[in-house]
């Protein structure tokens, strides 16, 4: 793919990145030995709890924050080696949108979108033309003359996105870009970002603390916990088989799967893991009862649909002997993308 076009396959390569802040009460290791490679054209999610170091990491990608150690390469350029002047030029390729939108409040929307072009010294007519085009892309050409205070949050973020696109960047960094928005507006902004990624081929890095954001637009995800990447991979892998505690907490915010389930004597439990099964329209539990005569109760379920496939866990309770359980497991696992095993739960 991108290799053939002469560009680097990895748009962003972060190696052994550490950032330590010197604070009044000692050193604070905000990032510890981060290694991340983000493919050209990817939508890459970085998810973690508040204080995990997400913003620091994203600020290291455009060198707003100088790493204490390690390197950040964007499109093959080692940003740490650049002078301030060269870095400023690079930043036209690595633009950013923010949680608080960060529009200039004393400028009209059009002038806000023109801002990066003004910094470049582009002539006004040309800059205005380009800005109007971009406002059209984000669906706000009629708000060109309005001031940000007259716009809703979602509209303000659209203007910010238009502004971030004026310099034809290679990378768009989104730091909690939808965290200040309601769910509907969040979805429309995510759709816009997805669309931009597809149409313009811009590599997008999405920083968030919300699972739903990663699920709905990211292809790859890294989980950041206390300054460390504890898990990374495709969204499907990481979310269907969370290994680290941090990942489990994000995927199952209501607690470790089934840990609160208490069984009775003679009850058996089967954990069914959906790992990308096309489960839609196939009522497994009902068919288990009809075809095998095995009745199962759902004791716990946490599944999510990601790009049409099911991911997650269901805990079934079955009354019967060992053979019934084996039969049920055999039946369930005939379906591709489903794993099942008997598990022990606390007995009353």
């Amino acid at each position: 793919m991108a290799v053939f076009s002469g560009r680097y396959f990895f748009m962003i390569e972060i190696q052994n990145l550490s950032k330590t802040f010197k604070t009044a009460d000692g050193d604070l290791e905000a990032l510890k030995h981060i290694d991340l490679s983000i493919a050209d054209g990817d939508i890459f999610g970085i998810i973690g709890m508040s204080g995990a170091g997400k913003s620091t990491l994203v600020r290291c990608i455009n060198m707003l924050e100088r790493p204490t150690e390690g390197t950040v390469c964007v499109d093959g350029v080692d940003l740490g080696q650049l002078s301030q002047k060269e870095l400023r030029a690079q930043r036209r390729d690595i633009t950013m949108i923010f949680q608080a939108f960060n529009l200039l409040m004393q400028r009209t929307c059009l002038k806000n979108v023109m801002f990066p072009l003004e910094l470049l010294g582009m002539n006004r007519t040309e800059a205005k033309k380009k800005a109007l085009e971009l406002l059209e892309i984000v669906g706000l050409q009629d708000k060109a003359k309005a001031y940000p205070a007259q716009l809703s949050g979602g509209q303000q973020q659209r203007v910010a996105i238009a502004r971030a696109l004026t310099t034809n960047p290679k990378v768009l960094l989104c730091d909690e870009a939808t965290s200040a928005l309601d769910p509907n507006t969040t979805n429309s902004i995510l759709e816009l970002i997805k669309d931009i990624n597809k149409r313009l081929g811009i590599t997008v890095v999405v920083i968030t603390h919300q699972m739903s954001v990663v699920e709905s637009i990211c292809k790859h995800v890294a989980i950041l916990d206390m300054g460390e990447v504890v898990e990374q991979g495709t969204v499907e892998e990481v979310f269907s088989h969370p290994k680290s505690t941090a990942a489990k907490n994000l995927v199952f915010p209501e607690g470790e799967e089934g840990s609160f389930v208490v069984g009775n004597e003679g009850e058996h439990f089967i954990r069914v893991v959906y790992n990308g099964a096309y489960a839609a329209g196939k009522p497994m539990i009902a068919r288990l009862a009809i075809e095998k005569g095995i009745e199962a109760n759902i004791s716990y379920a946490s599944t999510k649909g990601i790009s049409g496939k099911a991911f997650g866990t269901i805990l079934l309770s079955i009354s019967g002997d060992e053979n019934t359980v084996k039969e049920a497991i055999a039946y369930l696992t005939t379906e591709p993308g489903i794993e099942a095993e008997e598990v022990e739960v606390n007995v009353q």
Partner: peptide, 26 residues
Amino acid sequence: NPNLIEMAQSTGATPFQIICKVMIPE
């Protein structure tokens, strides 16, 4: 708002541009 200054920096503004186009106008 310090966020606006961060925005300008992330857009590649020079300190002089930040003064003239962000800090004073805002």
